[in-house]
Amino acid sequence: MAKIIVVTSGKGGVGKTTSSASIGTGLASRGFKTVIIDFDVGLRNLDLIMGCERRVVYDFVNVINTEASLNQALIRDKRIPTLSILPASQTRDKEALTREGVQNVLDQLSKTFDYIVCDSPAGIERGAQMALYFADIAIVVTNPEVSSVRDSDRILGILQSKSRRAEKGEIIEEHLLLTRYNPQRVAIGEMLSVEDVKDILAIPLLGVIPESEAVLKASNQGTPVIHDQESTSGMAYDDAVRRLLGEDIPHRFVDITRKNFFKRLIGA
């Protein structure tokens, strides 16, 4: 039985796909058979971030409609043998994902994979609800910014009332992943801090991913940023994966170093 993880946020553009790609990669590189599913019907993007866009032949909706087998649609990652991607369809039909269809695909995947990572579309409507419905674990991606925090709280409400686990009266494991964090701006009171967001959302912190140029570079190249272990965001994603697997490790890149702080103070 695979564990199903949804990467969700409510608000768009906060880093769900970036996080799905890196977390899926991190799990697979530790030997877990992992598949990342793009639930963003009509706005396929995960394939680009994973660098496999030219190998897409069939997609999630083709499998649901039995126009292709799962094996035909799954794309094996070129870097990590235990990692696969199931791309989203480019169809404009938002009704293409049915609950029965999704369940069927997840059941099949569950037989061979250890982790199924669901990259949710933005919003709190049908598409996002479909991505989170079957989840055992939710990673709530949040930016330190008012509208993102509010939307994260709304998505938490949906997780706690409209997911399969909630309907069965079971607990869904919730994790906060704070991304695009800028410790400099936090230090001068211009940005909500980790503690602020934790206070408001009141769920355990999985990781803090700093705002970093490496993310854009990684997406340009089609290589998930976790492969870039020179970059702060790559290291922070790796830490987050280790915590997801139960390790207890301190959070890095949350505070600015003294040297940097004074540099900024004097405007250097």
Binding site: E145, V146, V149, R150, D153, R154, G157, S161, V186, I188, G189, E190, M191, L192, S193, D196, D199, I200
Partner: peptide, 21 residues
Amino acid sequence: ASASVAKERLQILVAHERSRR
């Protein structure tokens, strides 16, 4: 600081929305 204003506004809003839920 603007961040503390943001936190205060969020705390009120989130509490309100949670009670409505």
